[in-house]
Write a protein that binds this DNA or RNA. Structure first.
Length: 421
DNA sequence: TGTCCACTGGAAGGGAGGGCTT
DNA sequence: AAGCCCTCCCTTCCAGTGGACA
């Protein structure tokens, strides 16, 4: 009796002491976030100098060439461009040259109208004028844009990040007008910095736009494991307290991220999440074990988030595929999946979409990596998609469990077996 | 060799939903 | 309120297609 109480007491003490005595892990976690711009960018000197060389005419009052910046995700394109343009802005003040840098992420600003409107609105403090986010005819926004930019002598550098998204969605009209705008301006000079991680997208461009835009090109090669290690080391020094990182941690994060096409973003995430996991466990050191856990967690989390935010019909469609999987009927083709999807809609009293639309939704699920959809020809038996599931049915159901509107679906598996088979 | 399946994926267009100006 | 305009999501229509089969 006495002994047991003693044990319990030690246990209770240890709950708190575990955390109390745990060494703090993070000194400054912010350093590991994507948005953080470090003072130095390791292994990007070449690209920084190339960009600086291209933009330097500004300081002499000449229009710089337009630039295309290429490189896969997490190769430091955005951060480098931001770094160089910030420096340019800083130094241009010394030379008394007015420079405006407008940074637009085309994943969000993805139409001609929105690009133009955003540029106009960048000057709202100066012009006291703001274009609504929808509503105006596009050519009027363009006219306003010219008028506002041209109000005084200056250089305007427009950075279009993820420019491929813009082109794919709304064509190259915007680029066409923006690349020719200089001939219609009297005072101001505009140049464009396009950032893309897709090399193929040049094929979509009108040759005139292409030649004007890629007057200069800067390529960002992927980081290799050693370079990633340097980057992580640099950040780790600021982010973590001394000696909390096991020696193997940074090299492992670097190696794992290098395997995924040298993505520095991924490497930083890994390092941050490893630290968080260690902290939660009350460990005094971050070890390899934490990195492996982090790797798994990141994969799980992104997939879960993607499924959670799917629109209703995509969720029903995914559930149709889950049911087929549970019945051992995968790979299935579009027709089969559509039939089950339609039944599910009936069951939920929802108007089903057409097969044409569902075919697009299948492609979307494929792009998101939730399913695998390969176009195959079965000869005499037609051409269709072969559809497979990339996540476990259990996982999907678990996510749906917390979505009230999807509750009816979860009971269907049994009903379906009774009704259809 | 041609046929024909079960679709694919492009094109056009409608209409709801957002927001503007007048 | 009426009249525009833009975007998103969707439908309708349809030409096109890889390859098994006769």
């Amino acid at each position: 009796m006495e002994k047991r109480r003693e044990n319990e007491q030690t246990y209770l003490d240890s709950i708190f002491e575990k955390y109390l005595n745990a060494k703090k892990i993070f000194k400054n976690k912010e350093v590991l976030r994507h948005s953080y711009t470090p003072k130095e960018l390791p292994h990007r000197r070449e690209q920084i100098e190339a960009l600086a060389h291209i933009l330097v005419p500004v300081l002499r009052g000449e229009t710089p060439s337009n630039v295309f910046v290429y490189g896969k995700t997490g190769t430091g394109k955005t951060v480098t461009v931001k770094f160089v343009t910030e420096e340019l802005k800083r130094i241009s003040r010394k030379y008394n040259v007015p420079v405006d840098v407008i940074y637009l992420n085309c994943e969000i600003v993805d139409t001609q109208y929105r690009v133009l409107a955003n540029i106009v609105n960048h000057f709202k403090h100066e012009s006291g004028f703001e274009v609504p986010l929808v509503g105006w005819p596009t050519d009027e926004v363009y006219a306003k844009l010219k008028q506002i930019i041209d109000a005084k002598e200056r250089f305007v550098i427009i950075v279009l990040d993820e420019i491929d998204k813009l082109i794919k969605k709304s064509g190259d009209d915007v680029l066409y007008s923006l690349t020719r705008i200089n001939s219609e301006l009297k005072n101001a000079k505009v140049s464009i910095v396009g950032i893309s991680n897709d090399l193929k997208f040049k094929d979509y461009l009108d040759p005139r736009v292409l030649s004007s835009l890629s007057e200069e090109e800067v390529v960002f090669p992927p980081y290799d494991a050693n370079q990633l290690r340097d980057i992580l080391m640099q950040r780790a020094q600021e982010a973590f307290y001394p000696d909390v990182l096991d020696e193997a941690v940074v090299p492992l994060c670097a190696a794992l991220a290098a395997r995924e096409h040298g993505d520095a973003r991924r490497a930083l995430d890994l390092l941050r999440v490893s630290g968080e996991i260690a902290e939660r466990e009350g460990a005094s050191k971050v070890t390899e074990k934490h990195v492996w856990k982090a790797q798994e967690k990141i994969e799980q989390d992104t997939m879960e988030e993607v499924i959670k935010t799917l629109p209703l019909h995509s969720k029903i469609l995914l559930y149709a595929i889950v049911l087929l999987d549970e019945n051992g009927e995968l790979p299935a083709n579009t027709g089969d999946v559509y039939a089950v999807y339609k039944e599910l809609c009936d069951y939920m009293d929802i108007e089903p979409l057409t097969q044409r639309r569902v075919s697009d939704l299948i492609n979307e699920l494929d792009m998101l990596g939730i399913i695998n959809a390969k176009v195959v020809s079965k000869g005499r038996y037609g051409r269709t998609k072969e559809i497979r599931l990339n996540v476990t049915p259990y996982k999907v159901k678990n996510i749906y469990r917390f979505d009230y509107s999807l509750q009816p679906l979860l009971t269907v598996s049994i009903a379906r077996q009774r009704r259809l088979f």
